[in-house]
Amino acid sequence: MTNLTLNAVSHHYNEASVENISFTAQAGKIVAIVGASGSGKSTILKLISGFLQPSNGTISIDDKLVGSSKICLAPKERSIGLVFQNHALLPHMNVQKNVEFGAQDKNTKAQVPSIMRELRIEKLAAKYPHEISGGESQRVSLARAIAANSKIFLMDEPFSSIDSVFRRDLRNDMTRFLRKKDRTTIIVTHDAEEALELADHIVVLDQGRILQQGAPEDIYFKPTHMQAAQLFGEVNHIQDTQLIQTLTGNNANEVFLRPELLRLNAKDGIEGRIIHIAYRGNYSMASVVVEHQRCLKVKTNRTDLSVGQTVYLGVV
């Protein structure tokens, strides 16, 4: 089991810059790096894998320094398994050979059949990459990384090219597998739902800097920046101290309240009027105007609401 630590890492190269990045991926845990396009997610992966060298700061695997402005261990010396969005399968090799490509010696090669069985790709062994689906390709890609006995897995948008129908299944399988194998994993994604579901720790990036990091529940329910909050879905950003006091009983200057934390009461609470209802299938999002013309969004399962109706807002 392996710890990965980035300490105040910076890298400056044209537009692909990151600044003062610090986080630790605990042994056997999954860390998700989340951010919009161009936020520096892939640059961090390249820094960890050794394809880029930090301008400042240090990268350590367990207690061994692998990257700094003075030291940059080659990728092959870091025991890292890479899994890419486009799978990077070798088109001239069949599935079996692709998985074996990762295996370094006879012992690890001997484990290939069991790895393939666990990832449910043993029947694809003789097929070539162009003969299998995107989801199957990604399973092969992961199997190859496992076969290489890599201590750390780096996954760059591993599910984004998979059809949404199969994505959830693949995600579940992979997470179960990674946890079972106790592999330290870094997943780069722009999909907030994916990050919340998979990760033990989330790092939110914006323009090359860390906006916030922490456990998924903290990132979702206690965002500290508007950008970080918005990445994970709709949020009510309230800066009216009186309204905050009335709603939550806190004296804070600003709060980020998720719509599902607000409740529509029959009588108690702040009076408001519904101005819009968006139907979202298993719930509806009601836009409610309260005092001083402030608009709050409320997630609700009620079906008896109508535009113009007066309601009372409270916190769950």
């Binding site: 394809f51 990728p75 092959k76 990077a88 370094q104 890599s150």
Partner: peptide, 21 residues
């Protein structure tokens, strides 16, 4: 794709091995 080179380097393959294989 450059990812193939990166993947192979990560697995400890030398430049010669990447070129050959």
């Amino acid at each position: 794709s450059p990812e193939m080179d990166m993947m192979a380097s990560g697995f400890g393959k030398s430049k010669w091995a990447i070129w050959r294989q």
